[in-house]
Nucleic acid binder design. Structure first.
Lengths: 155, 155
DNA sequence: CGAGGGCAGTTCAAATTTGAACCACTTCGA
DNA sequence: TCGAAGTGGTTCAAATTTGAACTGCCCTCG
């Protein structure tokens, strides 16, 4: 391999900011959710995705896909949510081994209760700190980054 | 509390991109490091920060600070790196309970060996996907986000 | 002096995450 | 029609992460 192309100052700054902001925002929201809603971030995300899905249900594999985590991780967290009564499992009639995770009435209420404070915190740490122009660039740039990796991860 | 201010389309797009890109980039680099250098991302980061520090050493608490993780997490990972011979512990002469983590010669070599492929991957997934303008906005915007949280987390 | 409050790390148990192995059941291809 | 390769989840042990409790030692007030 030839001489590596090291990062210049701008690239380094972008990279480090990305990493630091990612970690800190994660931590901040993790704490907020645990404290104010009694849910871990992964658990909250599961509820959000189920709530957004038609019928309030998704296949296990789809959840893993959307949360960008492993299949076994989903199995574990859905089991936790089931214990809490916020999610229910349902066999998938079509596919033989398929399983749906379904948002329960209780899960919906819990989500509705938790969402406002969560969104408020998301604003505090990220959204309201930036102007519209910055948000637009962020969405565009990181959207590209995400899509590329999503496409490349799949196969 | 009054009616929550939900996110509009742009804000939502920025937020989701930020989260998805964060997760996917993390995963991509995790794999790259594990496969090509036999190090976990936290371990690699420890080596990087030590290498950047004057004398190749940092206090445990400083490491925790810079890596944005818990004290016990650092104790654990430094222990792992010690087993691998990449880092060494040294009592801090000044402070009574202080401990320095010191990069060993071996650790330096391991880092030098791992860095080029890692940087290349960072370019692939993030840096080279964006143009200079986007990088500048990213650095500026996420820099602000990170600094605000850093300042607020400290106390 | 002497008790309380901090500080810097470590230790510990509990929760989570991961990847690999596995299971039951299809669907092909020869 | 048999067996090989998939699918879609689950299970399992091992690695990691977390927060809370703990250890010694310093400092400072009363």
């Amino acid at each position: 391999m030839s001489e590596p192309r090291w990062l210049d100052d701008l690239e380094m700054a972008a990279w480090q900011s990305f990493v630091e902001a990612g970690h800190r925002v994660d931590r901040a929201l993790e704490r907020q959710l645990k404290d104010e809603a009694g849910l871990s971030h992964p658990q909250y995300e599961i509820l959000v995705h189920l709530s957004a899905a038609p019928g309030g249900e998704l296949r296990m594999a789809e959840l893993a896909e959307e949360l960008i985590t492993s299949k076994s991780g989903i199995t574990y967290q859905v089991a936790q949510l089931e214990k809490l009564g916020l999610v229910r499992r349902r066999a998938c009639p079509e596919q033989p081994r398929g399983v749906y995770a379904v948002l329960t009435e209780q899960g919906e209420q819990r989500l509705r209760g938790a969402a406002p404070a969560h969104v408020e915190r998301v604003r505090e740490v990220l959204i309201d700190v930036l102007d519209r122009e910055q948000l637009a660039v962020l969405a565009e740039a990181l959207g590209t980054v995400g899509r590329r990796l999503r496409a490349h991860d799949r196969p």
